[in-house]
Simulated scan of single mutants.
Amino acid sequence: MIRFTKSETNENLELKLEGDLDIESTEVVELELIPIMEQFKAVSINFKEVPFIDSSGIGLLLNAVQSLDEKGIKVTITDVREEVMDVFDLLQIPEIVGDGVFV
């Protein structure tokens, strides 16, 4: 299960995720996190405490980044663990979402 904390400054939001981003956490992200993120101009998602992501989590992340980008919301993903970044790199996620998302 995924948990999150949020920190707001002006029109920016920082989300710190904790736990696995998998099929069990998609509902939390879709129903709680995405509506929150849509209220800001820039969103930073901290992955430091995310040890695992599965295909449903990757799909959800891709959809969220694309949806927010279409609304003019800048998304960055930070502090990704090496094992999770290896999965992202293997699937070419940084190339798919574009420059500047993974920092």
Rank of each mutant, 00 (worst) to 15 (best):
L68N: 07
L68V: 04
S67C: 03
S56T: 15
F52R: 01
D54G: 08
E49G: 00
L60T: 13
S55V: 10
S67A: 11
E70V: 03
I53L: 08
G59R: 07
V50A: 06
V43W: 09
V50N: 08
I58P: 01
I58Y: 00
N63V: 05
N46K: 09
L62T: 05
N46D: 15
P51H: 06
N46F: 02
L61E: 06
V50S: 04
F47Y: 12
I58H: 00
V50Y: 00
F47D: 09
K48N: 10
V50W: 00
G72T: 09
A64Y: 01
L60E: 14
D69H: 12
I45F: 13
F52W: 00
E49K: 13
F47Q: 10
P51V: 03
I58F: 00
Q66K: 15
L61A: 11
L61M: 15
D54T: 03
A64D: 04
K48P: 00
L68I: 02
K48D: 12
E49N: 14
K71D: 01
D69N: 13
E70F: 03
G72N: 01
L62F: 02
E49L: 10
K48T: 03
G59D: 05
A64K: 04
N46C: 13
F47C: 10
D69C: 01
D54L: 08
L62N: 10
S55K: 11
N63E: 11
E49A: 13
S44Y: 11
F47V: 10
L60S: 11
G57S: 09
N46Y: 08
V43A: 14
L60K: 13
S56L: 12
S67I: 04
E70Q: 08
I58W: 01
V65M: 08
V43S: 13
S56P: 03
S44G: 13
V43C: 14
L62M: 14
D54I: 07
K48F: 00
E70G: 02
S55E: 04
L60A: 02
K71L: 09
I58E: 07
S44A: 15
V65I: 15
E70R: 10
A64M: 15
Q66I: 07
V65G: 04
G59H: 10
V43I: 13
Q66L: 05
K71S: 02
N46Q: 11
G57V: 06
A64P: 02
I45H: 12
S55Y: 08
I58A: 09
D54H: 09
V50L: 07
S56Q: 11
K48W: 00
L68Y: 08
I53A: 02
V65D: 06
G59I: 06
S67H: 09
I53M: 11
L61D: 09
I45C: 15
I45G: 14
S55G: 06
G72D: 09
L61F: 14
S44C: 14
E70H: 05
G72L: 01
E49R: 10
I45P: 12
S56D: 09
S55R: 10
I58Q: 06
L62Q: 08
F52G: 09
I58C: 06
F47I: 07
S67N: 13
S55P: 08
A64S: 15
N63D: 11
A64Q: 09
V65S: 02
V50K: 05
G72A: 03
P51M: 10
Q66F: 04
G57N: 06
K48Y: 00
L60Q: 14
A64C: 12
V65W: 05
V43F: 11
D69Q: 12
D54V: 05
I53E: 04
G57T: 04
I53H: 02
K71I: 01
D69Y: 03
D54N: 14
